[in-house]
Design a protein around this nucleic acid. Structure first.
Lengths: 244, 244
DNA sequence: TGTACATCAGTGAACGCGCGTTCACTGATGTAC
DNA sequence: TGTACATCAGTGAACGCGCGTTCACTGATGTAC
């Protein structure tokens, strides 16, 4: 059970596995995850359909592999966009991270639909997908928390009459604490962060699924304007004029 | 070609047509629109599959009928919720309209996925679906425009550094004018309305598709808090404490 | 280094299934005189 | 009111298709001695 030199067989296996998931992801661009056909994927890879069962015990396991891979890829790109900015430049980090989400999504619309579109009927994502799923979101949370450091965020632009989100977002607050990101995050800031996260993905979703047709043409600029306003609503400035 | 007394055949035809669409919508709850099977629908209705072709020339036409019916039903409920409030009570109308969107959506999750989830691969919604699709959205727009009347909305809570949305939302502004809703709507208000509309559906989408698991438990209260903040960001108050 | 055996990637046929759509038909309903 | 014909909702068989999964097989690769 010790790690050993990978054999030719091991290497071939890894390669073929990659080719299968790559072919599956390519298919996702043209057909929904629910329509994803194991036989079609096998054909694309140049395998007979039954051979795929050497790699994935069932179609659902292939779906799970795609889910994990996609969440991880998206998460890595958002983390990278965040890390490329100076840590104190929270506005720049915010813009970069949000843009990374949109860029990955429009570059991989099929994968976006898998992650954030309608769930696949009859398929329940297993627990192993949870951690990868939170990576992109956590980047946004960390930026907001860093923006709060030393500042009394938020003056969150909310009307004093509005309800206290304290216990409504208690789950999110606890999660942030459990991940060691912050001991105590102001509920209003967490509320606004949840809203911003939702808005970012909602905006990308509406762009990709065609709901802005007739209202917005320049999706890239519109997205930047949205992202600026979301930061302002949380309580910090994020000017899109900063270079990407 | 003049309208005549409907015959027994006409009545039966209308009834059966309704039973078909109803059965199809019921199926949508358990399977995605792309999986919607004409044969399964026929079975549910108690017809042989070929009989459905007396009513819909193809599966795609059935989908179109569902799309129109769902957009219209959602639109009607949102219009009704809006109309039930005093016209000057813009805050109350906003809350009611947004709540109507959520209520319809969680009551008809399959239909919601059809309208706002991933598009059906290989199916392009025909032009006749456009007008019904805008009904719910236009209610929100009208409320914002009414809120602006006599007021200098928005003091929209946006940072002065943020970009001018003028030409980015030009399409939406022109559409509002073309529908005779307002001669000139401030671009920032339109921008914020687009954002709010996106946020409302994004929030419902995240609730239905499971992305809030672990962060939010009480979706109804969370939704109200979101809706209040969206109104505040546009520039008017909408307290959820008002009775529905 | 060479041999004997074990592992396992990939094959190809087969299974049972449900799908959208077509077609010739039947019998009930509607219309014209 | 009665008859002859036209319309059309619904039937049932058939078409060709692609699907997920199983299974016995083959031959190449890996391992133990």
């Amino acid at each position: 059970m010790t790690d050993r030199q990978p054999t030719a067989r091991d290497l071939a296996r890894a390669t073929t596995r990659t080719r299968i998931t790559a072919a599956a992801r390519a298919r996702l661009t043209e057909e929904g995850p629910a329509q994803l056909s194991l036989r079609a994927v096998a054909r694309d890879v140049g395998l007979v359909s039954s051979a795929v069962y050497r790699y994935f015990p069932s179609r659902d396991d292939l779906l799970t592999a795609l889910l994990v891979q996609d969440y991880d890829e998206l998460g890595a790109e958002v983390e990278e966009a965040d890390a490329a900015r100076d840590r104190t430049d929270v506005g720049g980090r915010w813009i970069s991270a949000c843009r990374a989400i949109r860029t990955w999504s429009i570059t991989h619309p099929g994968d976006f639909a898998l992650l954030y579109g309608s769930p696949v009927p009859g398929y329940a994502a297993p627990p192993e997908t949870i951690e990868p799923a939170t990576r992109a979101t956590l980047v946004l949370v960390r930026i907001v928390i860093d923006a709060m450091t030393g500042k009394d965020l938020p003056d969150c632009r909310v009307d004093p009459v509005a309800g206290d989100p304290g216990d409504v977002v208690a789950g999110a607050v606890a999660y942030i604490r459990s991940r060691g990101i912050a001991e105590d995050a102001p509920p209003e800031a967490v509320m606004r962060t949840l809203m911003a996260w939702t808005a970012v993905f909602g905006t990308v979703s509406f762009e990709l699924f065609g709901h802005y047709v007739g209202s917005v043409d320049d999706h890239e600029r519109y997205f930047d304007l949205v992202v600026e306003r979301l930061a302002a609503d949380i309580g910090f400035a994020a000017s899109a004029s900063a270079s990407d």
